[in-house]
């Protein structure tokens, strides 16, 4: 009895987990090699689904990637040139220039109107949230950490949207904020004598990004506040004694202390976008929408009866998130 008891205790959880989590996650790989419509028999098609994915401009656009690759190389050249002229580290500035070019290519190309696919849209939403949500959240966390009155109430309010279902929030934003007739934004536009704008139809990505940022800033505020609490207050005091300005304190003390957490939140921004489904699905009108991120694109393909193809998308996304997790695990081992 004493020998089998530990197994008996762990067995129910393990059984549930193996059958309804591990098994489907493995089965996805198998189904990705089949053609299946969700009802009839499966037929083995080898790598046909993946071949289709490579040529699918709805999933990824080669134009945008070539543009950003060119921009990346140009950035690399500029970075090296700059490093040579100013006698700085070549590798560092080269890599920096390369990534800046890559990002500039994707964002710029998207703005100019180079067709974008679901993958790029996912990356753009994720990367912009790094640059928007994290700095704002850090500022708010620092303000609330400075023992202002009502800090707890402000933190509770900031976190509120994270709690509420994305479906409800998507409906609220779609019909109360962005709507042509009753949306708050258009009421304000009309007040100033402008023509009402159909936000979700004319600038869907911007609208979605705005709502996403509105929801998730509070999450990072709470994470940063917990991280700030772990910095000993004596360090802040000695900074004050040394006469460091607010910005210097931020750069020299706060950021080095919580850099691990900041890196983690950056990764969360990107990997979270790969899982985001509800918001975009409800806000932009389900499978009929033309604006997709990877997860909604997958479900759209399912709804149209390409279940094997949907699995191929899932497999590709799995490897992308695996890469992100690898970075995450490495990042978490960084000694502060």
């Amino acid at each position: 009895m004493k020998k089998i008891l530990p197994y008996l205790f762990v067995l129910p959880a393990l059984a549930f987990f193996m059958i309804f989590f591990i098994y489907p996650n493995i089965d996805v790989f198998r189904i990705s090699l089949y053609s299946w419509d969700g009802i009839g028999p499966e037929t083995f098609v080898g790598t046909a689904n993946f071949e289709r994915l490579i040529g699918d401009s709805g999933f990824w656009s080669w134009q945008l990637w070539s543009l950003s690759a060119i921009c990346g190389l140009a950035g690399l050249a500029l970075g090296i040139l700059f490093a040579r002229l100013t006698k700085r580290g070549m590798l560092r500035w080269g890599v920096l220039g390369f990534f800046a070019g890559l990002l500039g290519g994707i964002f710029g190309g998207g703005l100019v109107g180079v067709p974008a696919g679901a993958l790029e849209r996912t990356l753009v939403i994720g990367i912009q949230s790094i640059f928007v949500q994290i700095p704002i959240a850090l500022v708010i966390a620092l303000i609330l950490h400075g023992r202002i009155r009502g800090a707890r109430t402000f933190a509770i309010i900031a976190f509120l949207p994270v709690m509420i279902s994305l479906v409800a929030l998507a409906l609220v934003w779609r019909y109360m904020i962005y709507d042509m007739n009753v949306g708050a934004l258009n009421v304000i536009v009309r007040l100033f004598g402008g023509q009402p704008i159909n936000w979700l139809a004319d600038m869907p990505l911007l609208s979605v990004v705005l709502t996403t940022n509105w929801i998730y800033i509070g999450l990072y505020v709470v994470i940063f506040m917990a991280a700030l609490k772990s910095i000993p207050s004596a360090i802040f005091d000695s900074a004050k004694v040394d006469g460091l300005s607010g910005f210097q304190t931020l750069r020299r003390i706060v950021i080095p202390h919580i850099n691990k957490v900041i890196l983690l939140t950056c990764i969360m921004c990107i990997s979270g976008t790969f899982k985001a489904f509800d918001l975009l699905w409800v806000m932009t009108g389900a499978e009929a929408s033309e604006v997709h991120i990877t997860s909604t694109y997958l479900v759209k393909e399912m709804m149209y009866g390409y279940w094997g193809y949907a699995c191929a998308i899932a497999v590709v996304c799995f490897f992308i998130s695996l890469a992100i997790v690898a970075i995450q695990l490495r990042a978490m081992k960084i000694k502060v």
Partner: peptide, 11 residues
């Protein structure tokens, strides 16, 4: 860390 609802296979 890895995996998600894997909806097709779950179905």
């Amino acid at each position: 860390f890895v995996g998600g609802p894997a909806i097709v296979a779950m179905y």
